[in-house]
């Protein structure tokens, strides 16, 4: 990176308009299971430094996510597809000196993106569809089930699909899944 001095001076930071900020957002977040401690993040950056995804992606920065929650940049957070790059390895959760569960915060934000912005990566809609149909997130073909038995495994217990569907309905998930707009891929660079 051979940035000259004049180029460095010309850098204009992105402008965030005050009306974009939702001052109540952090309070709402801190009532959600998993995101309770978002307000005590002091931006040390341990989460980003130790995040395996951040090492290989220019877009995914857990520290920035925590700060954006504190600032109330709700729409920017929920519409940013980088949110879907977290692999839930929980390294940030274990390493945070303040006990902030960053991966929990990301999960809460993903749930909000699905519920409030109707946004969901296609793969999760597909898994959910399979689950509602078969009780498993993959539709296991009949040939596979037969092969199991030929290989000496006991027959796979039959799931109770009616119960599973009911759970999708009563948790509001079936309705949510009908409304979501899906997108296939998330860029990392």
């Amino acid at each position: 990176m051979s940035e000259t001095k004049s180029e460095a001076r010309e850098y204009v930071p992105p402008v965030i308009k005050a009306e974009e900020l939702d001052p109540k957002f952090k309070y709402k977040m801190s009532k959600m299971h998993g995101a309770e401690k978002v307000m005590v993040c002091f931006q040390c950056g341990t989460c980003t430094a130790d995040c395996p995804i951040a090492r290989f992606s220019e877009f995914y920065r857990p520290r920035r996510i925590a700060r954006m929650v504190q600032l109330g940049l709700k729409d920017r957070l929920l519409l940013d597809k980088a949110l879907w790059l977290c692999s839930s390895c929980f390294t940030c959760v274990d390493h945070c000196p303040q006990g902030v569960e960053i991966a929990g915060i990301v999960r809460v934000l993903r749930n909000m993106a699905a519920a409030d912005k109707n946004l969901l990566p296609l793969v999760y809609k597909e898994l959910a569809t399979n689950l509602m149909k078969s009780g498993f997130v993959y539709e296991i073909p009949e040939s596979r089930l037969q092969k199991r038995v030929e290989q000496g495994l006991p027959p796979l217990p039959k799931p109770n699909v009616k119960d599973v569907m009911k759970i999708f309905e009563v948790t509001g998930s079936a309705c949510l899944l009908e409304k979501v707009q899906t997108f296939a891929k998330v860029e990392s660079k």
């Binding site: 299971h33 998993g34 879907w84 839930s88 999960r107 809460v108 993903r110 749930n111 699905a114 519920a115 969901l120 999760y124 898994l127 959910a128 689950l131 009780g135 498993f136 997130v137 217990p157 039959k158 799931p159 109770n160 119960d163 599973v164 759970i167 999708f168 009563v170 948790t171 509001g172 998930s173 949510l176 899944l177």
Partner: peptide
């Protein structure tokens, strides 16, 4: 394990309550 269903894990990104309920079942 009789009548088990997906553990719920892949659904946590969609709806936390859904994951918890599928797991709890």
């Amino acid at each position: 394990m009789p009548e088990y269903n997906c553990c719920g894990y892949p659904m946590d990104v969609i709806n936390h309550d859904l994951m918890l309920t599928l797991a709890a079942r």
